[in-house]
């Protein structure tokens, strides 16, 4: 027994030590770089913490019933709020959703299920990706040229359409991604039962992909709610509650933009409060999207 052991002992050659030496240059470099990325990650989190801290400290005190219902104050007035801006933002996001969600979902169906490799689908998918990086202010310029000039007035319609232009590619790509996750064998099984393509889509693909589609849609809505550049010269702003859709309409983001540059303490305070309200709204959508996404279909 011992003889065999002796035989398979390794030959005596000069092997470097295989044990990790903490003081070796390589190990020190490792240690230093690990510390560096930790530092950078914490550095990158500072802006978020600072933004949220400022929103709560500067805006939290004023976030009461008056702020979310009253009309914006003029010049030297005290008090006031941004009730009309909340209504305006929600209305325009509603219009944008009503336009972009059906079109986006249908386009996604075509891209993901009906004809994924056709020329139209390839070009459309690529342009949708290009459009997600589209400067949001250009949506405003475009809608100004198409709607504001034609109708002769700034309106909630124009603002909603501008937001819809921005939401459409996001909704399409997210919905396509969700529909692609539906396993092929589920579709095959339905086809095997004699379903038409439309039936497969409505009874199998859409119900299965629904949580994923919802997540994408809600995130697009959150993004649209925070947008301001496309509303600047489509919806403009208004100091009153909206009475119809075809008139200039207030929005939270434009109110923040307008008030941030004003020399009045009251307005600046309100800009912070409106920012807090806007961030809460956006975060609310984000959290809902996360909760919905958690039930996402997994194979």
């Amino acid at each position: 027994m011992s003889q065999i052991n002796e035989q398979i002992l390794p030959p005596r050659i000069n092997l470097p030590s295989l044990e990790k030496n903490v003081l070796e240059l390589r190990a020190l470099k490792d240690f230093f770089l690990t510390g560096l990325v930790w530092g950078l990650a914490i550095l990158a989190s500072i802006p978020l913490v600072s933004v949220i801290y400022m929103l709560i400290m500067e805006g939290g005190a004023r976030l009461d019933f008056e702020a979310i219902t009253a009309l914006p104050p003029a010049g030297f007035e005290t008090g006031g709020g941004f009730g009309n801006a909340i209504v305006g933002t929600l209305t325009m996001v509603g219009i944008a959703s009503a336009l972009s969600i059906p079109i986006g979902t249908m386009a996604a169906l075509y891209l993901a299920i009906l004809n994924p490799n056709s020329k139209t689908a390839t070009v459309s998918r690529f342009l949708a990706k290009v459009l997600t990086g589209f400067p949001s202010i250009l949506a405003g310029v475009f809608v100004y040229a198409v709607i504001v000039i034609t109708t002769g007035t700034y309106s909630a319609w124009a603002g909603g359409v501008a937001l819809a232009v921005l939401m459409l590619p996001t909704v399409t790509l997210a919905a396509e991604e969700a529909m692609k996750q539906v396993p092929q064998r589920m579709k095959d099984a339905a086809f095997g039962m004699g379903c038409t393509r439309t039936q497969v889509i409505f009874k199998v693909v859409l119900p299965t992909a629904l949580p994923g589609i919802m997540t994408g849609v809600i995130l697009a809505v959150a993004g649209a709610a925070g947008e301001s550049a496309p509303l600047l010269f489509t919806a403009l702003f208004s100091n009153y509650y909206m009475s119809e859709l075809a008139e200039p309409t207030a929005s939270l983001s434009i109110l923040i933009y307008n008030f941030s540059g004003m020399p009045f303490e009251n307005q600046i305070e309100l800009a912070w409060t409106a920012s807090l309200a806007l961030v809460l709204l956006v975060l609310f959508f984000n959290i809902v999207a996360r909760v919905v996404g958690r039930t996402k279909f997994k194979e």
Binding site: M106, A107, L109, Y110, L114, N115, L127, T196, R197
Partner: peptide, 28 residues
């Protein structure tokens, strides 16, 4: 019938993204 109507509608929606970008460029 329904199937082909539905599919052509989806096709139009996919086409709308291409048309949208083209229209934006044209309008500007």
């Amino acid at each position: 019938m329904k199937d082909s109507v539905f599919r052509s509608f989806a096709y139009l929606c996919a086409l709308s993204i291409i048309l949208l970008l083209a229209y934006i460029v044209f309008e500007l």
